[in-house]
């Protein structure tokens, strides 16, 4: 028998907080507590877990706001050891209150790395979700669906971004880690995993036209592209399937530009030049007469 809890994968900070507090009030050190994920493989050595009982009159834990924010963030990470790391930081911060400011500490360095990954995942979701129009909702508003595969449990934290941006349309974002749905009033989060739907939208073609035309074949920097838009996002973006062809065609397009001989200018250019020349002569005449009248 050991102390600990079995937790759902999408356990958020607010669900974990009372459990951690319970362990702390029972004066259980990080080594004594096992935080087991429900989805983790069961092993032969798994022992049944019991929740520790708080001691009477124990002092509750205290955290600085910076540390609290860090724990809040790393609990969105998909790493199954996040609960243990968070409890260890909570435990250590009681004797080292400035702990979260020491980026060179091994626990904090790891937490900051997880925090960075969560932040990136959140940011990439705001960038790479693509809505596809799907008819009209019952309330007469336009209705959109999107499919996205986040690495971490970031849905609740991106919800405000989408519901404050796409206010005048209904939308649903489906992911393997749950879904978000907006109807103009409320944004509903559900942790139930979704399957990938079949989505299509005619506007995607215009977008592809734009994507191809805004690409400059004379400057190829695929490394820069991949560092910002790693391949894992490609399968759900409407534009990325065009990249191989764009790269394959680029050298020929550049060669064609270099080989092109200067051509005579179009007729309207000459008309413009003539008009310009006559406009330049006119003020010169005026100036001359002014000078003439002065002397």
């Amino acid at each position: 028998m050991a102390y600990g809890f079995i937790l759902d994968d999408h356990t958020s900070f607010s669900a974990w907080r009372p459990l951690a507090r319970q362990c702390f009030l029972a004066d259980r050190a990080p080594e004594e507590i096992e935080w087991r994920c429900a989805s983790a493989e069961t092993t032969l050595f798994d022992t049944p877990l019991v929740a520790p009982t708080p001691k009477n009159g124990a002092e509750p834990p205290v955290l600085r706001s910076k540390c609290l924010a860090l724990l809040r963030s790393i609990l969105r990470h998909a790493d199954q050891t996040r609960f243990a790391l968070a409890y260890r930081i909570l435990w250590r911060a009681q004797t080292e209150p400035a702990l979260a400011s020491i980026a060179t500490d091994p626990d904090i360095a790891r937490a900051l790395n997880m925090h960075k990954q969560v932040r990136q995942d959140t940011h990439k979701m705001t960038a790479y979700v693509r809505f596809r129009e799907h008819g009209v909702a019952q309330n007469g508003r336009r209705s959109f669906y999107a499919w996205f595969e986040p690495d971490h449990y970031v849905l609740p934290s991106v919800a405000p971004f989408f519901s404050k941006r796409f206010v005048d349309m209904d939308w649903v974002i489906l992911t393997p880690k749950g879904s978000l749905a907006w109807n103009g009033e409320t944004c509903a989060f559900s942790p139930t995993p979704c399957a990938k739907p079949k989505l299509s939208d005619d506007i995607d073609q215009l977008w592809q036209t734009y994507y191809v035309s805004t690409f400059n074949p004379a400057r190829i920097k695929t490394k820069a592209m991949l560092s910002e838009m790693p391949r894992k996002y490609w399968k759900n973006l409407p534009e990325t399937q065009l990249i191989p062809q764009m790269l394959a065609d680029a050298p020929a397009r550049v060669a064609a530009m270099a080989a092109q001989q200067p051509r005579p200018a179009p007729a309207f250019h000459h008309r413009l030049q003539q008009r310009h020349a006559s406009a330049e002569e006119a003020p010169a005449l005026v100036q001359k007469t002014q000078l003439g009248s002065g002397t």
């Binding site: 940011h123 705001t126 960038a127 790479y128 971004f161 404050k164 941006r165 796409f166 206010v167 005048d168 349309m169 994507y211 805004t214 690409f215 400059n216 074949p217 400057r219 190829i220 920097k221 695929t222 490394k223 820069a224 592209m225 910002e228 838009m229 973006l237 534009e239 990249i243 764009m246 790269l247 680029a250």
Partner: peptide, 16 residues
């Protein structure tokens, strides 16, 4: 429709 915050890059072309 719309919001503005820190700026988001929504796609990257092979010219980087």
């Amino acid at each position: 429709l719309g919001s503005v915050s820190n700026g988001i890059c929504h796609a990257f072309t092979p010219d980087g």
